[in-house]
Design a protein around this nucleic acid. Structure first.
Length: 816
RNA sequence: GCCGGGAUGGCGGAAUGGCAGACGCGGCGGACUUAAAAUCCGCUAUCUUAACGGAUGUGUGGGUUCGAGUCCCUCUCCCGGCACCA
């Protein structure tokens, strides 16, 4: 029978579904293994990138199942978000219709890859059964004080007409549409992720996360220890008597020659004197006009303007000018900095431009007292620093901080780069925030019993800058849950990262109408043992869901406090031209084209064979033929009737060699699949296949050996090529299903070589190779090396200094 | 600028400090075929040699070692992330 992948794929996909082979039972006695892959956005088409993320993940989950685990490997759809709304705007389709029809199509495509998804556990985030729990969690976080409303300068995308989270800004542009962002002051809902900053930096609860992701999270959180130090402005005569600044270099306090405020700093109007009013106004309006990209460019010229006021540096009583400069960010620290030009490169440039004094207070090594041509950032001894002179700057840091705290002029604090998580979106296609604004009671949460707050079917999707829900009177008009008088609903919706912060819980109990998930099931299944997905979610989804989990943990909702124990990031699949796939480059690969002709197994295996999964790599239209050819060869080999093998040609040595290779292959395959090294696992299986082809040609093994090899070959290949192996398994008369069998085991003794190639070197260069027994003694190996004519040729006329013996490997004769 | 990761044949890639290039693609030659496709077999780093063989070879330059693709230092380039964060 010829191998016809199209027939076999659909035959088994139908059979598995009919039999509920992928149904995951909660009361299964085997140990659990929860392996999740990041759920896709239902864009409508399953492209090769999805396959690259999902097929190897499925193979790994299948491997765990064959190792005896009860494996949960679920799938769902990240179904809220802007593209649905954009489709509604451009094509007049309702976001719900668009999303659901996309999901239907993608379900069909997902089935074609033959994964072990239990579809009864599917999660679709845009359905009220799901998003009501977003609202429920929101209320919990609100109760706990972790959700709050504040007016804040938020990032705004003029094209998407919505605020964005800081994480959605790339180089000053909207991550989605690339439009340059602007800033707006709006009342927004936030989650207090900053309160968890220190705990999020503690990675001790994680096992096997890529270092890259940990360092990205670390950078994103951006913890820095320093001192908040005040400068006295009581002489100006305002209510506010000081300017607070944050510095990590308090050791340079005696080098402060000016103070700079961010243009948005609240003290700016008060500190600006009449003479300087015009210049300051002009500067600020110019700063406003400057685009975010320009303002954030670090190589930009440092500009500023003098306010006319002075502050006093209390440590030495010096009067220093107060400037405004847009290189100071309002969003970090206190929005004001002390200017130490000698020891900060930005301050140095600023001081040069405005002719401000530059005073060295940390002496560089071998400093001759001369002026410096750039800021000195390094270590050194304190100088020009009064009583602190002579200390190392590290000693000075501590000493000054302690003294400032004694005098109440400052205190040691920690500053974070991370901002609170902005939840609000001025968009329709998301979870309504369950809050009500009452004229007399203020902000009132919707009672749990009234959830879900349903997203109304009808809305005007045209972006106006306000949530489309605001124009929907039926939605907006409500009564206050507290006092019963007329009130207005919150019309913003939630960031979709809310959905993905807890979806791992919902897979366990997707139809639960009483709770987001059942506590017993959470106890059984959580934490997720293995999570796989793209590295692009390093500081958004992965950080948010860690925060969310810790918040839930503190509220007593869950017992674990990390959602994902192990993380693996697959690389990016590139076009055949080694470029990123994109429609404009015309290098996009449609998996359906190959699945239809070569079969799902060939596509799966090729994606795994390209190279290490975490590296990604280029697709190849011709390369996949090699994988398809190999699967054909496997088919051909396994389908053969082995009884013709039992002839006089059977060779005991070849039988032993064949069994040895089999056991070596099982060992290698096992350890490779364990670590996501699919490419080398498949290479090992190919080697076994090649060997089998050889022994078949000369009938050198008996049928028992042959059948043993082909049976184990099928079992090892099953996680990667589930359809074909199932068909062959049945054809060979084994009991259904191959996917319920154990992964083969190996015997180290049988895998051990008994003859090895001993490499003979002279001065580290290979000169000869001889076959010897694997348990050869050193003395014998040395003697054989010296006896080799080739070695003798290279040693002749020289004196042997020594001879290194590496057991089982080589002899290296060192001569001079 | 800072933090990660990387650079190995024509291509994708493989190598616990110990035979560099497994496995696959492509190419070349052969078998089968009227022919082609498919399939099967063999060869395939570079230079040199009639051949046996020899020399060179893992981005650059140095170092450690009996021995380095692998460890250490320097530099170059590529990819990813962060970037006026005080």
């Amino acid at each position: 029978m010829a191998f016809d992948p199209a027939v076999i794929d659909s035959k088994w996909q139908a059979r598995w579904e009919l039999d509920g082979l992928h149904k995951v039972l909660d009361d299964d006695p085997r140990p659990k293994w929860y392996e999740m892959t990041m759920y896709p956005y239902p864009s409508g088409d399953l492209h090769i990138g999805h396959w690259y993320a999902m097929a190897p993940a499925d193979a790994h989950a299948r491997f765990r199942r064959m190792q005896g685990y009860n494996v949960l490997h679920p799938i769902g759809f990240d179904a809220f978000g802007l593209p649905a709304e954009n489709a509604a705007i451009s094509r007049g389709i309702h976001p719900y219709e668009w999303t659901i029809s996309n999901i239907e199509n993608m379900r069909r495509q997902l089935r074609s890859l033959g994964a072990i998804y239990d579809w009864d556990r599917e999660v679709i985030t845009c359905q009220p059964e799901y998003y009501r729990w977003n609202q429920w969690f929101f209320l919990k976080f609100f109760e706990k004080g972790l959700a709050y409303r504040a007016k804040a300068p938020v990032v705004w995308c003029p094209s998407c007409q919505t605020v964005l989270a800081n994480e959605q800004v790339l180089n000053g542009a909207c991550e989605r549409c690339g439009t340059e962002i602007t800033r707006r002051d709006l009342e927004q809902w936030f989650f207090k992720i900053t309160e968890y900053a220190d705990r999020l930096l503690d990675f001790s609860g994680l096992e096997e996360w890529p270092d890259k992701i940990l360092s990205m999270q670390q950078n994103w959180i951006g913890r820095s220890e320093g001192v908040e130090i005040s400068f006295d402005i009581s002489a100006v005569g305002l209510d506010e008597k000081e300017i607070r600044t944050f510095t990590t270099r308090i050791d340079t306090l005696f080098g402060v020659t000016f103070v700079v405020l961010a243009p948005e700093h609240p003290l700016v109007p008060g500190l600006t004197t009449e003479d300087n009013q015009q210049a300051v106004d002009e500067y600020i309006s110019k700063a406003r006009q400057t685009s975010e990209i320009d303002r954030l460019a670090s190589d930009k010229e440092k500009t500023g303007v003098f306010t006319g006021s002075y502050a006093v540096n209390r440590i030495n009583g010096e009067r220093i000018p107060v400037y405004i400069g847009d290189y100071v960010l309002t969003t970090y620290g206190t929005g004001a900095v002390m200017g130490v030009p000698a020891h900060d490169s930005r301050d140095f440039i600023f001081a040069q431009k405005y002719k401000l004094p530059i005073r060295i207070v940390i002496a560089p090594i071998e400093w001759n007292g001369q002026d410096v041509s750039e800021a000195y950032i390094g270590e050194g001894f304190m100088t020009n620093s009064g009583a602190y002179d002579g200390m190392t700057n590290e000693e000075g840091k501590t000493a000054i901080a302690i003294d400032l705290e004694k005098k109440d002029w400052g205190s040691r604090t920690v500053s974070f780069r991370i901002r609170d998580w902005l939840i609000s979106r001025q968009r329709y296609w998301g979870t309504p925030i369950p809050m009500v604004y009452c004229g007399s009671c203020g902000v009132v949460p919707v009672p749990e019993a009234d959830l879900p707050v349903l997203l109304p079917q009808d809305a005007d999707f045209t972006p106006t800058g306000e949530s489309p829900l605001a124009a929907n009177e039926d939605f907006v008009k409500t009564t206050c849950p507290k006092c019963g008088t007329a009130a207005r609903r919150e019309t913003d919706t939630m960031d979709t990262f809310m959905d993905s912060s807890w979806y791992m819980m919902r897979y366990l109990d997707p139809h639960n109408a009483k709770d987001p998930s059942n506590s017993k099931l959470l106890q059984k299944w959580m934490t997720v043992d293995q999570y796989t997905g793209g590295a692009e979610h390093a500081v958004m989804h992965l950080l948010y869901s860690r925060f969310f989990t810790k918040g839930m943990h503190d509220m007593g909702l869950v017992e674990y406090d990390e959602p994902f124990l192990r993380l693996f990031n697959q690389g990016v699949i590139l076009g055949a031209d080694h470029d990123k796939m994109s429609k404009s480059k015309g290098n996009v690969v449609n998996p359906d084209d190959f699945v239809g002709t070569l079969g799902a197994d060939a596509v799966r295996c090729f994606l795994m064979f390209i190279g290490p999964w975490d590296q990604g790599g280029p697709w190849s239209d011709v390369g996949i033929n090699g994988t398809a050819r190999w699967l054909n060869r496997v088919w051909d080999i396994v389908a053969r009737d082995a009884s013709s093998l039992d002839t006089a040609a059977t060779n005991a040595e070849m039988v032993r060699d064949t069994n040895r290779l089999l056991h070596q292959t099982v060992r290698k395959c096992h350890s490779d699949l364990d670590r996501f090294r699919f490419n080398t696992a498949i290479a090992a299986l190919m080697e076994l296949t090649n060997h089998l082809n050889k022994v078949w040609a000369d009938s050198s093994v008996d049928s028992k050996t042959w059948d043993g090899c082909t049976e184990k070959l099928l079992l090892m290949l099953a996680p990667m090529a589930p359809h074909m192996t199932e068909e062959l398994w049945e054809m060979k008369g084994h009991p259904y299903s191959i996917h319920q069998q154990d992964f083969p085991t190996w015997d180290d003794d049988l895998a051990a070589e008994d003859v090895i190639t001993l490499v003979l070197q002279v001065n580290g260069k290979v000169r000869d190779k001889i076959e010897v027994s694997a348990n050869i003694e050193e003395s014998e190996a040395q003697a054989l090396a010296m006896a080799s004519p080739k070695i003798q040729g290279f040693v002749a006329g020289k004196s042997v200094v020594k001879s290194v013996y590496v057991p089982g490997r080589l002899v290296n004769v060192v001569v001079n």
